[in-house]
Design a binder for these strands. Structure first.
Lengths: 247, 247
DNA sequence: AAGTGGTCTAGACCACTTG
DNA sequence: AAGTGGTCTAGACCACTTG
């Protein structure tokens, strides 16, 4: 089955932007021009432009035209996303490096987040996620520290997280249903500076997330894992679109 | 001039969901039915459903129908909150200090966010928000920089924002319906250090928010204002509760 | 005045699920 | 088979900016 035509046009525009042929601020072809170039109706060309605008790739000004937007990678604040999917949707390549994969006794802080006794054994993974753009520029975009209940994922330590993210693996085991999360601004310690390749004065966006899910054979929702996600403040931001709430 | 028809349909659906007349999991009327009920073409009814789906209010399944999504995200990261309400709900006292209230020409960055020509005159306010706890300890918790289109709020500069926040004032003028927002980690400049009473090495959580609303006499939803909210990273965090909508 | 984006119509064919 | 959502067309009129 062929891809929808508006997808073809979106990919065409994304490719131009990613290659840098169309710079931020540049005008992109008008709806009428795209319709002609791709032999589609104006509504179809329009859909491609509208969806890229909603995605933050383009900016439209009525009467003036459509322009390439200033861009920073943006993660979603509103849903539980897999960073690999996020990067892929931007048309970039995701790479992961496993820095650590082991079991360890839970500190009191971690134990409290997971709702278990301190010093209980938990599985721990630390990954570094890269985003590689179309010019093969590779950016360390996230350091992920994740604490997992062994009962939830007994084979966690045997997984190859370079091919499937911990998040994807865990949601394959049990459908993730809810999460608490919060965002903080923190300074990187020396290890984090090295992993993210940032200076000691670059602040980091820290996203903490506690995920709850239904386990096979259980009716009750329970905590599945706790993750701390560190992003370089100058290369990443978290965003969302809100509807229908008074200011 | 009337609002677009797809907006009318969106509001109708949102009202039903908010009143609880349509519960999560319930089917909403089909495109064809809505088109008939509202005397519009199917494409227009479809637009209403599609936009509410993108916003997470509805869920669509091809061949099956359109349903109210399981649960709506709630929490301060997930909705547009007034900081005065937030503080009051914590049982603390909110105080505001007006640092600046003037008109100025929009920089290119601000102009881009507001969708206007650079150097257009906009209203600008800078406020400092304090949270006073039960021991009368006062903490500077937010510096708010807000750029407002004069057409939206002609009397903006005459307001007393120590008694009513700009956010509350603006939403009293026009029901604000949608917003984009994003979070970044930044280092404070010297002015911000002084206002928030933090050291040069304390990172800040920066929340940027672009609010869109319907203006009287205009069909089109347009940008109402753009705000940048700075919080001390060691005294403030943004959080929320997520519910995953399986898709 | 010409070009651009914003809204809308009245159809069409298709993919998918079973209200 | 009937109904639903997904894609698409070839038009139309309008609001807005000056490419």
């Amino acid at each position: 089955m062929a891809a929808p035509r508006f997808e073809t046009i979106k990919k065409h525009i994304i490719a131009k932007v990613e290659k840098g042929q169309w710079q931020p601020g540049d005008a992109v072809p008008s709806e009428n021009l795209l319709a002609e170039q791709f032999s589609v109706s104006r509504m179809t060309a329009r859909r491609a432009l509208t969806e890229l605008t909603d995605a933050g790739v383009l900016q439209r000004i009525q009467g003036a035209g459509t322009f390439v937007a200033e861009q920073l990678p943006t993660g979603s604040l509103l849903e539980i996303r897999n960073i690999a999917d996020e990067i892929t949707e931007r048309g970039h390549r995701h790479l992961a490096e496993v820095l650590e994969l082991t079991e360890l006794p839970a500190s009191s802080l971690i134990a409290a987040q997971l709702g278990i006794a301190p010093d209980s054994v938990v599985f721990f993974s630390r990954l570094r996620h890269f985003e590689e753009d179309t010019r093969n520029q590779r950016h360390a975009i996230q350091v992920e520290e994740r604490f997992v209940l062994p009962a939830v994922a007994p084979d966690y330590l045997q997984q190859d997280f370079t091919t499937q993210t911990p998040s994807a693996y865990l949601s394959s085991l049990s459908p993730l249903s809810e999460a608490d999360h919060w965002v903080e601004a923190v300074m990187p310690d020396s290890a984090l500076q090295a992993w993210l390749n940032i200076s000691p004065t670059t602040p980091c966006l820290k996203l903490s997330r506690r995920t709850m899910g239904l386990q096979r054979g259980r009716r009750k929702k329970q905590i599945v894992n706790f993750a701390m996600l560190y992003h370089p403040g100058d290369k990443y931001r978290l965003g969302g679109h809100l509807v229908n709430n008074p200011s």
